[in-house]
Amino acid sequence: MDHAEHGYIERKDDYLRRLRRIEGQARGLQRMVEEEQYCIDILTQVSAMTKALQAVSLGLLEEHMNHCVLQAAHEGDDQGKAKIDEAVQAISRLVRS
C-alpha cells in the first residue's frame, strides 16, 4: 500500500506533534527518576503519558477503520474480512496493554 493511502496521512502533523509531546513526557519522567522525586508524582506523570499514548492509538485505530477497513470492504468480502481481522487483533493488543 502506498504511504499516501494511509488513513492517518491527513492528520500526520497532529500525530507527530502528539508523539513529540509524549517523547518530552518520557524525558521528563527520566529526569524525575534521576532527581529521585516523589513516587506518586512520577506515577501521575506515567498516567498522563499513558493516556496520551492511548489517545494516539485510538485516533490511529479510528483512521484505520474509517479508511483502510472501509476501502477494503468495498474491494470485496475477502479484503474486508482480512482488514477487520487485522483491526480486531490490533484492538486486542491495545486492550491487553
Rank of each mutant, 00 (worst) to 15 (best):
D41M: 01
Y15N: 05
Q37I: 00
Q54C: 00
A72P: 05
A82T: 08
E23G: 04
H64I: 04
R20I: 04
G24H: 05
R31E: 11
E35R: 02
K12I: 14
L94T: 03
S92Q: 13
D77M: 05
E10S: 15
R20V: 05
A72R: 06
L94C: 04
H74E: 11
Q79M: 04
Q45A: 08
N66A: 00
G59L: 02
Y15W: 05
E10G: 15
Q79F: 06
Q30I: 07
E63T: 05
D14L: 14
G59T: 02
D13V: 15
L94M: 07
C68Q: 06
R93E: 12
V95W: 12
D77A: 08
G7C: 07
A72V: 01
L43M: 03
Q30V: 07
E75N: 06
A52K: 06
A73E: 10
D13A: 15
D13N: 15
Q54A: 08
D77F: 06
I22S: 05
Q79W: 01
R93P: 00
E34V: 01
E10T: 14
V88Q: 15
Q89K: 14
E5M: 13
M65P: 02
A82R: 08
D85T: 09
L16W: 09
L70F: 12
E63A: 14
G76Y: 00
G76S: 01
Y15S: 04
M65L: 14
I9P: 10
